[in-house]
Simulated scan of single mutants.
Amino acid sequence: MSVSRTSSSSSSRLSSATRVALAGGIALSSVVLLSGTAFAHVSVQPQGEAAKGGYATVNIKVPNERDNASTVKLEVNFPLDHPLASVMPQPIPGWKAEVTKSKLSKPLELHGKKINEAVSKVTWTADGSKIGPGQFQQFPLSLGQLPEDADELVLKAIQTYDNKEVVRWIEEAKDGADEPQNPAPVLKLSAASGDHHGGGATAPSASASGDAKSGHDDKAGAHEEKTAAASSSSSDTTARILGVIGILVGIAGVAFGVLAGRRRSA
């Protein structure tokens, strides 16, 4: 009777463990699938900061979503309601970049000059390369001057495969709504900073550099003195220890000699 109950209990525990493992596997699979879907979109990622009124370097990240086709063309469109006077693609081996400009209805002023046209599109076409299945490619761009009156820039992209399939990443997300199936890449702009060229902190002045160098030398000298003192102290301590050991060895030798002499006398 007890054997039957034990067997039933073990089966119950095994069944529960199996259900938990199965549920965990399904949950993990769902997470992986959803993650793959979320990261499969064409996106724009700044390298460092993309501040309002400044300049920035960004990467247009293009994953290949097809198992039987390769990406051979990418077109990125720039909004003319917040025009960018300068958009420069970085050369990429195996890809040809073409920059298209359009006339502005309202001239753009940059560095005291009026500009009547701005970049409206950059197109990359495969020229000996491609984005194969299971691969992605980044297309770097230098942008500027970023608008001061916008929180983001929507860069609508069009991806073309070698089987003539075209995917339009042009859908804009709406507040409170689910993410669209083919969302457009969005470049978030941070608050304006003092440095409008996207650089870091300014270099120190010559006097400040000299003072810093002098201070560094003083600290280095003090450090060397401390090191030398520590080394000297360590040497003295070692010498003392060796001296004590030598005395103890000598005493032990004398004692051994006396003891040996007594044994011979006996």
Results as ranks from 00 to 15, higher is better:
A208R: 10
V154S: 03
G132L: 02
K101I: 05
D149M: 04
N116Q: 07
Q145P: 08
R168A: 14
G94M: 09
K101D: 07
D149R: 05
K156T: 15
I115R: 06
Q181G: 08
V99K: 08
K101Y: 08
A184P: 01
Q138P: 00
P89D: 07
S207N: 08
T100N: 11
W124K: 08
S120A: 10
Q145K: 06
M88Y: 07
E117I: 01
Y161W: 12
P140G: 14
G210M: 07
D151G: 10
L155R: 00
K103M: 05
D149L: 06
V167I: 14
H111L: 13
K188I: 13
G132H: 04
G200K: 08
T160W: 02
G128I: 12
T123F: 02
S207P: 01
K121C: 09
P133H: 05
D178V: 13
V99G: 07
E171R: 00
K188T: 13
P133A: 15
T100Q: 12
K101R: 14
A201S: 15
H197F: 15
L141G: 05
P185Y: 01
D162G: 05
L84V: 06
L141Q: 04
K114L: 11
K101S: 14
Q181V: 15
Q145V: 08
V119D: 02
K101P: 02
S105I: 03
A150Y: 08
G112N: 06
A157L: 02
D149H: 09
V167L: 12
A97L: 06
K156D: 05
A208M: 09
H197R: 10
K130H: 11
M88W: 00
A201T: 14
G198L: 10
S190D: 11
Q135T: 12
D175M: 11
E165I: 11
W124N: 05
R168P: 00
N116F: 11
H111P: 00
M88R: 12
R168G: 03
D151L: 04
Y161L: 12
Y161M: 07
W124P: 02
D151Q: 09
T100D: 13
P185A: 04
K164R: 13
N163H: 04
Q137V: 04
I131K: 01
D149S: 12
G200T: 11
E148K: 13
E109A: 12
L187E: 07
S142V: 10
I158K: 08
L153F: 02
V167H: 01
A203L: 13
Q159F: 04
L110V: 15
S86M: 09
P91I: 08
T160I: 09
T100V: 15
G176N: 10
P204G: 01
L141H: 07
L108H: 01
K96E: 10
E179S: 15
E171H: 03
D127M: 10
